[in-house]
Design a protein around this nucleic acid. Structure first.
Lengths: 212, 212
DNA sequence: TAGATTGTTAATCGATTAACAATC
DNA sequence: TAGATTGTTAATCGATTAACAATC
């Protein structure tokens, strides 16, 4: 892995797409792939693909292309998928539950250790095998159970407070689903999924099909 | 609204963010705002904000700034939020249900008219007041109930089929949550929410905090 | 009027694409 | 070896930022 200097977020955001394509290729039994073939599959230019990968190292071989299995492993390593990430989800409504079941079903790289909520009638219940705890106990919980990622699926009114508590508890990253830009004094990475923003863009393109 | 020529998707994706900020400002009783103040609030440069807005028209006034209420209305108009969009959700698992409750709770601009699934035990049930119908009846349903947006919350294996049926049924746009790039021969806009890609980027930044 | 702030043009910066020598 | 395809540099394209005249 070379990777010196800052790598643009445009590149980083394409890496998971490569990984996904390589997983599909592997499970369909493909052993090698050229940047040209990958280009047809993904839609990025072959040039861009080679450029992207070369930020991290020379994973290919002239005249041959890339070995699917190896490249998949390399990209996984770059992203940091060699370990299992412990997550807590703050907000145990439908979205929190959906994320919880999504995480537990789809990957060995992530594990939800606890849900949290303020609602009396939810606290103590289990969802997809995970206990819902009192939000008031979040700080304590994090102290005793080091956690990698905090997921925020509460209302926008409660989101900043949830974020502050998660940060104070020492999580390394935040996955935020509340429609708000969280104040983040430290350098903890925050990844936003702004569903309503996303839906609004879709509506724009529905009304301006000539713009596509 | 001037808006001649193609407007870059980077600009379009910022519009919902402006709308969100303006809603907050309005509900906090702010009447006017300058690009400079908005910049502090959102984090985009003042220059970029003025540049973005001027793609669509001169909504401001020299020496004054922008009227919050008017600008909010203008951006809503640009996005196409003057009407109510009818949606169906294909896939009534936890994610489909979460999207359903999210939509019905948050906005007057969207309305889920039906859920669909293949699972016998789900068909006929109601979730958040919306009936789950048999996926086999989707084509018929769309024929009799013109629908604006199709939401895909099924597995990646079923997603392309769901997409084809929705397209054939004449939906104007697709909101896709399956981890797959849908084949889209026509020009129907597709908006993807690739949760696992998003989570993978977060993991990258957790492992490379110096890159932020 | 004087001050503030827009609308818009020009300059800069960065990301994507093209090209090709290196090499498997 | 000949053919294919990478790694990498250079060229292009587009998006962001800076600057300032226009004007409220």
């Amino acid at each position: 892995m070379k990777q010196e200097g800052k790598i643009s977020s445009a590149v980083i955001r394409r890496l998971p797409r490569y990984l996904r394509a390589l997983e599909d290729l592997e499970s369909s039994g493909t052993e090698r792939i050229s940047s040209g073939e990958l280009s047809k599959l993904i839609g990025y230019t072959a040039s861009q693909i080679r450029q992207d990968l070369n930020h991290f190292g020379g994973f290919g071989q002239q005249g041959y292309g890339y070995n699917v299995k190896d490249l998949k492993a390399e990209i996984g390593k770059i992203l940091g998928l060699g370990q299992k990430y412990k997550m807590v989800i703050v907000g145990s409504g439908r979205l929190g539950q959906a994320i919880n079941s999504f995480i537990s079903s789809y990957s060995e790289n992530f594990c939800v250790t606890s849900l949290f909520d303020v609602k009396e009638d939810l606290i103590g219940k289990e969802k997809s095998g995970v206990l819902i705890r009192d939000f008031a106990d979040l700080e304590d919980y994090l102290k005793n159970n080091p956690t990698d990622i905090g997921v925020i699926t509460v209302t926008k009114e409660s989101a900043q407070n949830a974020c502050d508590k998660l940060m104070a508890g020492g999580v390394d990253g935040i996955w935020n689903f509340a429609p708000i830009d969280l104040e983040n004094t430290g350098s903890t990475p925050v990844e936003n999924v702004h569903l309503s923003d996303n839906l609004h863009s879709l509506v724009y393109y529905i009304n301006h099909p000539e713009q596509i």
